[in-house]
Computed example of a mutant assay.
Amino acid sequence: MADVVDRYFSAYNAHDLDEVMGCFCLKPVAVGPGGPVEGRSEVASYHTAIWSAFPDLHVTVLRKVVEGDVAAVTTVGTGRHTGPFPLTTGEELHGSWRYVSVRCGWFFTVQDGLIVDQQIFFDQLELYLQLGLPLSRLGPP
């Protein structure tokens, strides 16, 4: 169980999409601030979009707790925003060249040695403010 999560983060930090996707089952589900995605192509698109926005993104694992087929991982993600980043408002923020550092919570469900479900949580307000977005751009109250 822990092996596939370790492999995932190693591949994620290398921005190696083939290795990342090799950690997932054939029909994975992933949930992040942008909403749920299903299937290998959608999960892969999510990863490439993040790496396009933050080409030097690096995730440092702070803590990992494994129980049965579930792993909970806290991380801090750091990188410079140089490419298009999709906002939850539907807009796209072009490179701000700002450096960000955001703590994240990741939850993985693993079956037969592969990730079947991945959920990522982070403080979007913290990220948006680090990117220089005024509160008025974040959507209606």
Rank of each mutant, 00 (worst) to 15 (best):
V102S: 05
P86N: 06
H58W: 04
F54L: 13
P28G: 05
W106T: 01
G68M: 01
Q111S: 11
L129E: 09
F107P: 00
A71C: 09
H81Q: 14
F122H: 11
D69M: 03
T89Q: 06
L135K: 09
A11Q: 05
V116E: 13
D3K: 10
I120P: 00
I120V: 15
V116W: 00
G34H: 11
R103W: 00
R103K: 12
F85L: 12
F121Y: 10
A53P: 00
A14Q: 14
D56V: 04
Q124A: 13
E19M: 05
G32P: 03
L138C: 05
G90A: 07
H15C: 04
A14S: 14
L114W: 03
D69I: 02
Q118E: 13
F54A: 08
Y99S: 13
L138Y: 03
G139H: 03
S45Q: 11
P36E: 12
E67G: 10
R137A: 14
S10R: 13
M1K: 06
D123I: 05
L114M: 11
E42C: 07
S10H: 11
D112I: 02
S45F: 01
F85E: 08
L138S: 05
T109D: 07
G39H: 03
A11K: 02
L26M: 11
D117C: 06
G105L: 15
S101E: 14
T74L: 06
P84W: 03
E19C: 04
S10Y: 04
R80V: 15
S41D: 14
P134E: 14
Y99I: 04
F9D: 06
R103M: 04
T60L: 11
T78R: 13
A2C: 07
T60E: 12
T78D: 08
L26G: 10
A14T: 01
V61Y: 05
T60S: 14
V4Y: 01
C25I: 03
V70W: 05
L135D: 05
K27V: 06
G83P: 06
D123N: 15
V73Q: 02
T109H: 09
P134C: 06
G32Y: 07
V20H: 01
G132W: 02
V61M: 09
A2W: 01
Q130W: 02
P86A: 10
Q130N: 08
K27P: 00
D3V: 03
V43K: 01
D16G: 03
Y99M: 11
D69L: 02
G22L: 04
T74I: 02
A49K: 07
S52A: 14
G105T: 07
L133Y: 00
V116I: 14
C23F: 02
L57I: 09
G77R: 08
T78E: 15
G32N: 10
V116T: 15
V61Q: 10
W106D: 14
V66K: 04
L135I: 11
V73P: 02
P86Q: 08
V110P: 01
V76E: 14
V65M: 10
F85H: 08
Q119V: 08
G79M: 07
H81C: 08
A2S: 12
T78W: 00
D16Y: 01
E67L: 07
P28E: 09
A30V: 02
F122N: 09
